[in-house]
Design a protein around this nucleic acid. Structure first.
Lengths: 231, 231
DNA sequence: ACCTGAACACCGTTCAAGT
DNA sequence: ACCTGAACACCGTTCAAGT
């Protein structure tokens, strides 16, 4: 891309910043489900086709939006202890995405990592670097990152869908009779948990399980012993 | 639902089994992206609106399809050692879903668990039961299951998207220059990994990291010591 | 160089009516 | 009880043309 536009051609009426602003406005006002190419164009007062001169496609738009969001939410001090630094970085990524439930559509996109901006990459670097410092080979460090990434993406996506429904209905189902349709005699533990399941499943255990995962990964990699587990 | 239809009314021309068969046919022939309500109706030779007498909506259709798939793929013998039983059950769930990349759309649906059929619930039971046997409280057992579920869903979803692209393009990007657009001086570890990243990320480490996760979760729960780690 | 309307090829779902 | 066509309210994206 040239630094200056040169002299030729019609000057642009629509800028990248205007597009991202309008997109955020739609999300805040109407909800992220309403962010479509056509609506965004209407919000900008342009034809839907014009947008395609500024973004490659819908996915490209969402990734640009996510990178902006990351830039604003992702910075924080990280602990010096490697194990804790991994955990803190993962929590930072998680919390940033959790505030962005519409990330769901784009989080699993192929080549996602390659399209991330600097702030997000710095979090990946922090995790990979801390894993190396804890004694992992670079291969193990990448695998550790991917395990954490899968877990984090899964948590975000499942929780994003649960939340959207809960606010929609108010009530999901009669709380008693949770596993009643199944042959409960073959499911003794689930039967005993019964209608306590929804409440247990609604608890936020991301951080606790993350700590367990990181400790397990470091132990399997033959890396340094863990600090004391959080409960 | 009544056991017999009674005597009144027009007899159904379209059955649940016919619908699911036609759906599978579309998936096998045209790919799962082509499975839409309208196409499915066309395949059956009926109007799209008729389908709504047999399935609640598109999501309901997909969940019915997934339950059938689970019934056919999910059974297997499970080890007696609780830790290994958890791992084997998770792998069974994972492999079943991995063969079903179009699960992505439905895996994170709210109340998903409540809508699962008996075979899938038996896998949940196996994990929760094994966790209890390993010394977890029922609360810890549910949280352990959820952690594994998040990790598994994340892996499936990310990998499903990567695969669909890879087969599409043939080649993703010039392999050198993987992190080149970023300020590499602030990303020393990523810079050192460089273009080895795609190959490392493509490796299947689901099972290895799962073992680490389960060991970590059991250790954090104060449960029995683990068997020797797999490498 | 940038912007445009028209068009293509679709979606999921609801409704009032028919048999 | 089951099935229907028409309609509603949309999608993302491409193309040839205009300024």
């Amino acid at each position: 891309m040239p630094r200056s536009h040169g002299r030729t051609g019609r000057p642009p009426l629509t800028s990248r910043a205007e597009i991202l602003d309008a997109a955020r406005k739609i999300i805040d006002r109407d909800g992220w489900q309403r962010l479509t190419v056509r609506r965004l164009a209407a919000e900008l007062g342009i034809g839907p086709t014009t947008l395609y001169h500024h973004v490659r496609d819908r996915e490209d738009l969402l990734i640009q939006l996510l990178n902006e969001h990351a830039q604003q939410t992702l910075r924080r001090d990280l602990p010096s202890n490697p194990r804790d630094r991994i955990v803190a970085s993962a929590i930072a990524i998680h919390d940033s995405l959790a505030a962005w439930p519409w990330a769901a559509e784009v989080l699993t996109a192929d080549g996602f990592l390659r399209r991330l901006g600097q702030p997000a990459l710095e979090m990946v670097e922090a995790i990979v670097g801390a894993a190396a410092e804890a004694g992992c080979t670079s291969e193990q460090a990448v695998h550790l990152f991917r395990g954490i990434w899968y877990y984090t993406v899964g948590e975000i996506l499942v929780r994003a869908h649960s939340d959207s429904r809960r606010t929609g209905d108010g009530q999901d189902a009669p709380d008693d009779a949770f596993f009643d349709r199944a042959d409960v005699s073959r499911l003794p533990h689930l039967a005993r948990i019964g209608n306590r399941w929804p409440a247990l499943a609604a608890q936020d255990t991301y951080v606790a399980a993350l700590g367990a995962f990181v400790d397990g990964l470091l132990a399997h990699a033959g890396a340094v012993p863990r600090t004391e587990p959080r409960v």
